[in-house]
Amino acid sequence: MSPTSAATLAPSDPAVEASAVLRVIDVHKAFRTGVPLRRRRVQILRGASLTVSSGEFVGLVGENGSGKSTLMQIIVGLLGRDSGTVQRPDRLGYCPQYPLLWDKLTVKEHFELFAEAYGLAGKDAADSRDGLLEELQFATYVDYRVEQLSGGTRQKLNLALALLHEPQLLLLDEPYSGFDWETYLRFWEMAERRRRDGMAILVVSHLLAERDRLGRVYELRDGRCELV
């Protein structure tokens, strides 16, 4: 089966505002593993589908190895899919499970690079950056290189880069690993504030205990998403 191209939804289309911001339809993905000539195919996703609407906080849960991060990476575009469709908005923010950062660059330099990528300039970029440094309480480290940061602080930067441009759709892959308890609580407050402002949020978690904080929850089981 050949993959269907990922379409982007025009944020100005009125119909979009009232409907799903993210649509994942029947996505299949397999990996080949093993030595050449003896490779075997491991099917991870077998028709995974989900939607996330504006102002929703949707969870994606599942056991270790169920394919949650794989699905997230397919949604973002880091991984290709074997078949299926992903419809997502132009303006999205992605916080990967493991920080994708440059070890030798400082926190400030990361913000500058991503501000440019998001099309933020001058005061807008500085205000957004300063706001996030304040919210996540890591302003002290703005001139530190990533290699000098603790795991939790790296994760704060990882998350802040996804929020810098106030995206329409926020994709979070276990974003609070390494957070202390206070920062963990602050994360949920931040996320709830943005949800109320209309941001669509999909969070991958392997902890069912957080379900009370979420609207709808999909469980990824046997390669498919089921509403639980």
Binding site: V76, G77, L78, Y94, L100, F114, A117, L161
Partner: peptide, 14 residues
């Protein structure tokens, strides 16, 4: 060493 971060930056809009 920079592959992952570079791809993330490209996906962010660059």
């Amino acid at each position: 060493s920079s592959r992952g971060a570079d791809r993330r930056l490209a996906l962010a809009g660059l």
